[in-house]
Amino acid sequence: MFAGGIVSNITVYQEDFNSGINGPGQFTSTIASTGGSSPANSAWTVRANGYNAGPPTWFATFNSNDNSSFVLSNSDAQGSGTPSVPSITRTRLTSPPIDLTAYTTASASFYHHLNRFLTSDITRVQVTTDGGTNWTDLISFNADQGTPTFLCKFSWI
């Protein structure tokens, strides 16, 4: 006798960032930010729960949903730029490859906060099925999402 069915509630990959980023098997941070006095300061960085960016940027304390470490890309940290060379933040946080070939469906969820300052500010969640050559948007955020102390949960099924 053979029985089959849908396998569900299996966690294929989970990350709490307590081990950091940019190491083997971890998320990687890449930046293409320009302008400002220190574009590299906009890179995704692991922060401890209760992190305060402080002046001259934010006056807020950031807390994760479960009091663990989290990653933050702070566009204000790169500096404001000038009218002739504006400050443009472009950062990417990429997971290591996740093999889903044994599955017919997948879902993802995470907590996040977006403080939208300019109408051009946007955050995208993307997937690739060809090793990063082509990317497909799952969703784009172009409005404030949550607060530094109350993160929004995003779920994609």
Rank of each mutant, 00 (worst) to 15 (best):
T104Q: 08
I88T: 14
S120I: 10
F70W: 06
I31T: 12
I139A: 13
G20R: 09
T28F: 05
S37N: 15
N63T: 13
D99W: 05
T57G: 14
I31E: 05
G146E: 03
N65T: 13
N63D: 13
F154C: 03
T133A: 14
H112K: 08
S95D: 04
A32D: 09
P96S: 06
S107V: 07
L93S: 09
S8T: 05
G132E: 00
P83A: 13
I88F: 03
N49M: 02
Y13T: 05
G50Y: 05
A106V: 10
T94E: 10
A77C: 03
G54A: 14
S19I: 07
L114H: 08
I6Q: 03
H113F: 14
N67Y: 12
W44N: 09
A77R: 06
G25W: 11
N74F: 03
T57D: 14
T119I: 00
D99L: 02
F110P: 10
I122Y: 09
N63S: 15
W58K: 14
N22V: 12
N63I: 11
S69P: 05
T147I: 06
T129F: 09
R116Q: 12
S8D: 15
Q26Y: 08
A143C: 08
V7C: 02
T82N: 01
V127E: 01
S140D: 08
N67V: 06
Q126C: 02
S29G: 05
P55I: 14
S84T: 15
T45N: 09
G146D: 04
I88G: 07
I21H: 13
T94G: 00
N9I: 00
L138A: 01
V71N: 07
P24E: 11
L118D: 01
D121H: 14
S95N: 05
A53Y: 04
T11D: 03
Q126I: 03
P24Q: 11
D66T: 11
V85D: 09
G25T: 04
A108C: 11
R116N: 07
S29Y: 06
V46D: 03
I157F: 09
L93H: 04
S75R: 12
S33T: 08
R92I: 14
G23A: 12
N142A: 12
S38A: 12
G131T: 05
T28Y: 06
F17Q: 15
T119F: 06
L72V: 00
N22I: 09
N67A: 15
F2G: 15
F150R: 13
N142E: 02
I10H: 02
S73A: 15
S69M: 02
S109T: 00
G146C: 04
S75D: 07
L100E: 00
T89F: 03
T136L: 13
S73Q: 07
W44D: 10
F150A: 13
D130Q: 11
A40T: 04
S87N: 12
T89H: 04
F150K: 08
N49K: 02
S8A: 05
L118T: 07
A143G: 11
H113T: 13
D144H: 15
T105D: 11
P39C: 01
S109R: 02
L72D: 02
G79I: 03
F141S: 09
M1N: 11
T28K: 08
D121N: 14
S33A: 00
P39S: 02
A106K: 00
G54P: 00
N49A: 01
Q78E: 12
P96W: 05
N41K: 13
H113P: 05
G5L: 06
T94C: 01
F70A: 05
A53T: 10
